[in-house]
Write a protein that binds this DNA or RNA. Structure first.
Lengths: 206, 206
DNA sequence: TAGATTGTTAATCGATTAACAATC
DNA sequence: TAGATTGTTAATCGATTAACAATC
């Protein structure tokens, strides 16, 4: 079944996947209640999300764990591997390059690039920083699917332009800037200062 | 005015603040239209969010830029400084310790702690990694307001427990785990793998 | 006055969840 | 059969936005 899956549902799928991963290895079936508790959501939500995906459980029993995991992996496109380029060889870029969590899900960092000639050639976690002039060639030759922007804010838009014109259609933006991209390109933003500021909003009013 | 401000509004305030920062320095007033364009939201949204905060503009003219910035900073509690402890001295923890963006908004990283004795004593960006056994002392002595969890998933819950029992009431969690905290404690989660998986959902269906 | 822009209402939209018949 | 749990409806909740009178 391929109906329109709401964005909110999509963003919960990785959470369900992780919840299922934390189940005892010998557990064959699981109830929506249990997934809900592990994922921190409502059980009706779980059932509804799964029904969007066309996953069927068994009344009185629950869902088959292995089949459910496989369904979620397929829905998220995690049955193949994705080449990732990180733009920005600063601390954040290097941390992301080293981040072990990516490999678990089939994300392979194929390059870290930077505009600063002084950074080019440095090696972190087995990846040599290359010059950003090579970006277009790298994207084409290494079949890059995802670009991660880990540059200062002022460089973000230009980097996004170069990534998209090179053919990248998925961008994860860590720079504290709103970037414009052509339609059809998907951007997600992770802004560390914003997260902290939201915390302080609640904090400073006791 | 202090009515109930919706969570969605709160999470947009930092974005407005940044939008205003990117205005030309000599611009005295701004219209909701302009803020909206810079922030990537609807202009009615901007006006409504600001009215929640009790900010008044002038019909026909717009909002006073300086006054608006000051209002937003006060609303977010950014008029004072906050001590931050980073738990986890791995790549991510160090990247966060080095992240210059925090200082701009008054966040001061007062410690990086780790459970691994081999990491203790290492210095990154002027901060010496301390042992996690010192966490409670550090929180008390350095008046820590915010804890950042940058550990593996398996350690996240225990770290959260220690942070909260030491008195920390705001947590930013980078570990791929859902953590339980007492009511009154605020947790925000940033999950890098989840972000990438959401991108691939859209990517793999052309 | 004419033009611009706010502040707010009311409509819309979309997401969450309680509830329960269906059924294993 | 009795108990458990799904799948789905309908109600609720909350957030977004078009529209426009108020007014600078």
């Amino acid at each position: 079944m391929r109906t329109i899956v709401p964005g909110a549902t999509v963003s919960r799928l990785p959470v369900y996947l992780r919840a299922l991963g934390s189940l005892p290895g010998d557990q064959r079936t699981c109830a929506s209640d249990q997934v809900a508790a592990l994922a921190g959501v409502n059980s009706a939500q779980v059932r509804k999300d799964l029904s969007y995906l066309g996953v069927n459980g068994t009344r009185g029993i629950g869902y088959d764990v292995a089949a459910l995991i496989e369904h979620l992996r397929r829905a998220l496109g995690l049955t193949k591997s994705y080449a990732v380029v990180i733009v920005g060889g600063g601390n954040l870029g290097n941390a992301l390059g080293n981040y072990g969590g990516f490999a678990t899900w089939g994300f392979v960092v194929v390059a870290v690039v930077d505009a600063d000639p002084a950074k080019v050639g440095q090696v972190a976690a087995g990846i040599r920083v290359e010059h950003i002039d090579q970006l277009e060639r790298i994207v084409a030759e290494r079949d890059v699917a995802i670009g991660i922007i880990a540059t200062p804010a002022r460089a973000a838009q230009e980097v996004a332009d170069r990534l998209t014109s090179a053919g990248v259609r998925s961008i994860l933006n860590f720079a504290p800037a709103v970037i414009e991209v052509p339609s059809g390109v998907d951007v997600r933003r992770v802004d560390l200062s914003t997260e902290l500021q939201i915390l302080t909003y609640h904090l400073h009013r006791h």
